[in-house]
Design a binder for these strands. Structure first.
Length: 880
RNA sequence: GGGAGCUUAGCUCAGUUGGUUCAGAGCAUCUGCCUUACAAGCAGAGGGUCACAGGUUCGAAUCCUGUAGCUCCCA
């Protein structure tokens, strides 16, 4: 068989992905096995694959493939999220390009466009994930607006309403003037901006020249002022008691109120109060029963109520009004002032606090058990430090504004009667029944068409929080086979930035609807950043195109590269070098396979001693590493598990083991050894499979003849076998000897191809351990190995531990150079011994430290003493 | 303004209950090598007062206190 000298991923990857799909290996149905389940954090239908998805889904795939290879019934449910605001914005934008105004369409017509858009773009990310090797159960692909999931959301709304947890209320909300909708507190991002503090003076009513100066960052809101507030103890303003103030430009008379809320240090100590446009002012307004004048239209332009600048944008008005105030003699001064301004996470428009009627979900009761479940480790966070953040949010949780003034999404199932009252129901008909059953005769003549359904939809997260349940239809059919089997799911892999948006709320929903946790572990991934530490983003243009990377390096290389430097919860500084490292590793494995497959096997030759001991050593080494790797998996230290597997494969298997058992050039290998090598190789591929699925499947198939339906991905990972740590320990020493001989050769310019003789000098009457002598001989090209008590004048030697290794003179030696080296080492060792002696002569140390530690020091003492003797003798020897 | 966390090699990070698996790994760097699996490689080497200052202890990267710097979250 021709095997390419370099691994070519593009040829291999599509082939195996198709194979896995055709075999149905990704699909899961409930059975007798233990389930393992992950639900994907559903990507937006608006999105395309970015590096963050690559990392996140690589981790999920590793966990799923590993669970599958542990014999569990693994199910990874994929799907997408309808993303109300983002999608509606995209569709509106697209329509605008086509010259269609959203306002000119009916709701039904608009939704028609939205569904078309979703059909075209909604599956892009999921298809891209296939290139990465994602082993999702594609037959279970879900969308948050599929009928079953849609109805689940509506059911939950109705249920929570009936439980009194959902209410409709007038509240100050975060208004996104671009998307024309309210957004939740969590969707507001605060940014530091350089703004100005405007000092504006207001005339006291009934005076000609008595002024009160206030400081504001938002002069355009002056038109909505309905009070001036000062601290009751502020000496400067006592004269204002009982007075009224004239609002500049509009000449409205407003009261002065006294409240301790005011910070006397800030600005002038006098605060203008605009209840319609600031949350704190709103609260003051409630307290003092102030007039509320809403001076803005929903799109951020001035309303009729403002009287001036009607229809002009708030930021334009800020400029204009400053000029007008100045002209009218009201502007005292302006100062630069850095402050934080809230922006919409979705549209980046500056958030406008706005009074409006919205739907809210009470959070306090739901938060209580959800906090407890994380506090008592029923749900584990990896890394655990995120518990702090979670606790903080849960303890300070506020009611969740769940309505959005959009069309794309789950329409709020509330129906309004002509008199303005409403009922919550699944349909107009049901609503009508409820109305009729409640009221005597008053509404008996109502017809369905008299009812008007709420125009708004629900926050997207109000569907996402049900995701782990609704993908199995567990809201509508709580007893169905799937939900009973797969729920609670096992692991959730997500970003810390949505810990409140999503993770916390899933815990709440899980507890409310199943009295169960939604998942057992939450693994928080970091943010993928560029080399300068900037978050990768489209606008910065600093992100590589993931699919290009896969084409260039192969999916396995990308997976391995991304994971290498990504401990849980830590940000990943992306660098192409990481992916190159992944590619190099793939190639290394490929070449090892080429080596092994290149041998001719003979059952006629006996197995050399060196091979026997090498196989024993690698078997132990492998099992120790395996134990390590498995424990790293259970601690969710995936990058460490990968690193352990990497070193096992590269260092232990390739660099050591294969070199130990490798037959001489063009010589056959004995069949026992060959069988052992192929076995090890197979197991190694199984260990590596979750990280690099394609390459391992390819090599696994080349290593042995397989049946048509055989696949490494449904094989079982090896169990940890017995191991001999003393054997590993003894080889560690032999390895040091080998390295010392290599150094010796290099030092003395003796090429590897020239054989040398090696004599080991026995200390006193010790019985030498000869286990690895054949290995040393093979790897160092030793023609003769013996044990001696003395050495002859011409010999050269080196020391490992406290044993001297002698190599009969080959060529000339530089006596002075040797002496200097030996003297240096002698000095160092003497210093070392002094330190140890000092420690051992300290009675408090000997009495207080555990016996182990003291013994270790004694051992050091012995070794150093022995080494000094050898060194001294070597020096004497040279001087002779 | 309130809270949480971080600071260990040039870079990215490990380092459980204080004690020879405590100063580690990978990458990068440097030096030899195109040695018939692999130059996308092989064999070696160098590199850290564990942010700073105190304290506890026989013993501190690890525990305590303070200082400085960075990051994140909340308002």
């Amino acid at each position: 068989m021709e095997i390419a000298p370099k691994y070519n991923p593009s040829k291999v990857e599509d082939k195996w992905y198709d194979f896995w799909m055709h075999q149905g290996f990704f699909h899961s149905e409930p059975d007798d096995r233990e389930p393992y389940c992950i639900v994907i954090p559903p990507p937006n239908v608006t999105g395309v694959l970015h590096m963050g998805h690559m990392l996140n889904n690589t981790i999920q795939d590793i966990l799923v493939r590993r669970a599958r290879m542990m014999g569990k019934n693994a199910c990874w449910v994929p799907g997408t999220d309808h993303a109300s605001i983002a999608t509606e914005a995209k569709v509106v934008g697209k329509l605008r390009e086509e010259g269609i105004d959203k306002e000119s369409l009916t709701r039904e017509a608009f939704l028609e466009h939205a569904w078309q858009w979703k059909a075209k773009h909604g599956g892009i990310i999921l298809d891209q994930l296939k290139k990465l090797g994602a082993s999702c159960d594609w037959e279970r692909t879900c969308f948050t607006m599929d009928q079953a999931l849609y109805d689940s959301v509506i059911d939950v709304f109705i249920d929570l309403y009936n439980k009194g947890l959902i209410y409709r209320g007038v509240r100050m909300v975060n208004w996104d003037p671009k998307a024309l909708t309210a957004v939740s507190d969590e969707e507001v991002v605060y940014k530091e901006v350089n703004s100005k503090l405007y000092y504006v003076r207001y005339r006291v009513e009934g005076t000609d020249d008595d002024w009160v100066t206030i400081a504001t960052t938002r002069p355009e809101t002056i038109l909505g002022d309905t009070a001036i507030c000062v601290h009751p103890d502020d000496e400067r303003y006592q004269r204002l008691r009982g007075k009224r103030i004239i609002v500049p430009l509009v000449n409205r008379s407003i009261p002065v109120i006294f409240d301790e809320y005011v910070d006397r240090e800030f600005g002038t100590g006098a605060l203008k109060v605009t209840p319609a446009h600031d949350i704190n002012d709103y609260n003051l307004g409630l307290k003092y029963n102030l007039e509320v004048i809403d001076t803005f239209n929903p799109n951020g332009t001035m309303s009729e109520a403002a009287q001036l600048f009607v229809g002009e944008d708030r930021f334009v008005v800020r400029r204009k009004i400053t000029g007008d105030l100045n002209k009218a003699g009201h502007l005292v001064k302006m100062e630069d002032y850095p402050n934080k301004v809230g922006y919409s996470e979705r549209t980046d428009a500056a958030i406008e606090p706005r009074i409006s009627v919205q739907w809210f979900l009470k959070m306090k009761e739901l938060a209580k058990p959800a906090l407890e479940l994380v506090e008592n480790d029923t749900i584990l966070f990896h890394p655990a430090k995120y518990k702090n953040m979670y606790r903080h949010w849960m303890e300070n949780v506020t009611d969740w504004c769940i309505s959005r003034q959009l069309w794309w999404g789950h329409r709020i199932p509330a129906f309004y009667l002509p008199d303005g009252s409403f009922v919550v129901a699944r349909s107009k008909e049901e609503a009508l029944n409820i109305i009729k059953s409640k009221s005597e005769n008053k509404n008996s003549t109502l017809k369905p068409e008299d009812l008007r359904q709420d125009e708004d939809v629900l926050d997207t997260w109000f569907s996402s929080w049900l995701w782990p349940i609704s993908v199995f239809d567990g809201i509508r059919h709580p007893g169905n086979r799937d939900i009973q089997y797969y729920y609670p799911t096992d692991d959730l892999i997500t970003a810390p930035e949505i810990i409140f948006f999503w993770v916390a709320r899933m815990v709440m929903a899980g507890w409310e609807y199943r009295q169960e946790i939604p998942f057992k572990n939450v693994y928080f991934t970091g943010i993928v950043r560029d080399k300068q530490g900037r978050k990768m983003s489209k606008s910065l243009g600093n992100s590589p195109e993931p699919l290009d990377l896969i084409r260039q390096y192969g999916a396995d290389a990308v997976r391995v590269g991304m994971l290498f430097c990504s401990p849980a919860g830590n940000d990943l500084l992306y660098d192409d070098a990481l992916i190159e490292q992944g590619r190099n590793f793939c190639n290394k494995m490929w070449n090892a396979m080429r080596l092994v497959k290149g041998w001719t096997v003979s059952s006629d030759i006996p197995q050399p001693e060196v091979n026997k001991i090498s196989i024993q050593w690698f078997d132990s080494t492998f099992n120790v590493a395996l134990q390590n790797i498995y424990s790293q998996y259970s601690d969710y230290r995936l990058s460490e598990a990968l690193m352990s597997a990497y070193r096992l494969a590269w260092d232990d298997f390739c660099s050591w083991f294969l070199e130990m058992i490798k037959p001489a050039y063009q010589q056959p290998i004995d069949s026992n050894t060959y069988e052992a090598v192929v076995n090890f190789f197979e197991k190694l591929m199984q260990v590596l499979h979750p990280f690099m699925p394609f390459l391992t499947e390819e090599i696994w198939h080349i290593l042995r003849e397989r049946k048509e339906q055989d696949s490494i991905m449904v094989s079982l990972q090896p169990a940890v076998g017995p191991f001999d740590t003393s054997l590993i320990e003894r080889f560690r020493y032999a390895g040091e000897v080998i390295m010392a001989i290599r150094n010796f050769r290099k030092d003395k310019n003796i090429p590897q191809k020239d054989p040398v003789r090696l004599f080991i000098r026995k200390n006193n009457n010790e019985v030498p351990d000869t286990t690895f002598d054949p290995v040393v001989c093979k790897l160092c090209n030793i023609s003769e190995l013996g044990y001696v008590l003395e050495k002859s004048p011409d010999d050269q030697s080196f020391i490992v531990g406290s044993t001297e290794f002698i190599i009969p003179r080959m060529g000339v030696i530089n006596v002075e150079e040797e002496l200097e080296k030996l003297q240096d080492e002698l000095n160092y060792t003497r210093g070392f011994l002094d330190m140890v002696n000092l420690k051992l002569s300290n009675e408090r140390f000997v009495n207080n430290a555990p016996a182990q530690v003291v013994d270790a020091e004694r051992k050091k003492q012995d070794d150093a003493t022995g080494r000094i003797l050898v060194l001294e003798e070597q020096i004497r020897h040279l001087l002779r």
